[in-house]
Design a protein around this nucleic acid. Structure first.
Lengths: 217, 217
DNA sequence: TAGATTGTTAATCGATTAACAATC
DNA sequence: TAGATTGTTAATCGATTAACAATC
């Protein structure tokens, strides 16, 4: 079993996919599953499934397989810890911010939205997924008092750069970044998940233009 | 120079990041740039920059560096082809769909939104980023007539599964998938970009809980 | 016991990085 | 020419896959 900090990023990124498969199985009442069946469901190999689980100590029984209930509990613990929700703020309450806020609030992903911020006075006071939109000037005071751990950035590129510089000082340790500026590079002290919608669209375009067109060629 | 279909996915995913850096430089009037400077900006190595560009034939001059203008033109061509926008439909016009539609329409990413679809009659006829929301029943007829190439899926998991099965038959070759179901596995005939917001949030949670807390430890 | 399936080590594969000759 | 920097080959690194002993 590797020490938790040592688990590689590709493995970590696969955990939610395992979790979803297992949740579906648990809901169906399945009791056991083999690495090869999980692999087929996820489009990978049985080897990878076993390697991945063994990063965390091995959840199976030799000769038998994996108990769905055990996998479910272990993955749940890995992804959500003891179940304490991570206090989270949203910065940028525009269209994207609004969509994202309801996503955080609705889907049980381990986060609790405690505030939203925006520079636009027209938005101040509005409710967003159950929290009011506050002026950006209140950010520092709010963080000092309520100690959010995660910031969701739905702001333009330049605001993201400015904000990221101050966030660690406010106690923020994680950022879910929707601005199209890659925050992982300049701010290694933050744990960042970049969701670069524009980049993903552009690379899709390249792949489409260069895909083997088996229906035409 | 590798044949276009052979360029590896990691390289393709870096193209938009190069493009943004180069656009910024072009805007500043910079004329030349070295692989090492680009590498520093992107948080990678000069070696990788040169390897990446050489997948497409090499855009630089030995001893000199890269001309910003050349890089800009080449990356532009790679990402956007001849500039023809890819005709695109949105399926699912809820909160997320709304945010995403304005993203497609506003940011110049090489796509042209030509229609939106939803099962909810309450949304039918509404305008979304300049196109009307249509009943889902019209999807097949619309595709037959207008030949969209890309579908953006902002629908729940189960609808995504059902839709993906029929999309190739309607001429759709690419999918930008926001449903939390991984479409790459069951539909290899589609070029899919999965944007799994839930998964990205969950893995962020794991990383935060297991990050080395240098401010506490 | 025989069959199945994990845990774990070894082999392979691919991507990244380093090195260096070519060239401006 | 000397210095700089690419293009390209070689070395390294890490992730994936295969193999197999352990075990139910």
């Amino acid at each position: 079993m590797a020490s938790p900090g040592k688990v590689s990023l590709p493995v970590i990124k696969r955990l939610p996919k395992y979790y979803r498969s297992i949740c579906a199985m648990a809901a169906e009442g399945r009791e056991k599953v083999s690495s090869s069946e999980l692999a087929r469901l996820m489009g990978t190999t049985a080897s990878q499934v076993r390697q991945d689980f063994n990063c965390f100590g091995g959840f199976g029984q030799q000769g038998i397989g994996y108990r769905v209930e055990v996998l479910h509990a272990e993955l749940n613990r890995l992804l959500f810890g003891d179940g304490t929700l991570l206090p989270t703020i949203l910065i940028g309450a525009g269209r994207l911010g609004t969509a994202v806020s309801s996503f955080i609030a609705r889907d049980a992903n381990g986060y609790r939205l405690i505030a939203a911020f925006d520079i636009d006075p027209a938005l101040h006071g509005r409710q967003l997924a159950g929290v009011p939109v506050r002026p950006l000037e209140e950010l520092a005071a709010f963080c000092a008092k309520h100690k959010p751990v995660v910031a969701v950035l739905c702001v333009p590129r330049h605001s993201a750069i400015d904000l990221a510089a101050m966030l660690p000082g406010l106690g923020i340790r994680g950022v879910w970044n929707f601005s199209h500026y890659d925050l992982s590079v300049p701010y290694p002290e933050l744990t960042v998940e970049n969701v670069h919608l524009g980049d993903s669209l552009m690379s899709l375009g390249y792949r489409l233009r260069n895909a083997p067109k088996d229906d035409e060629g």
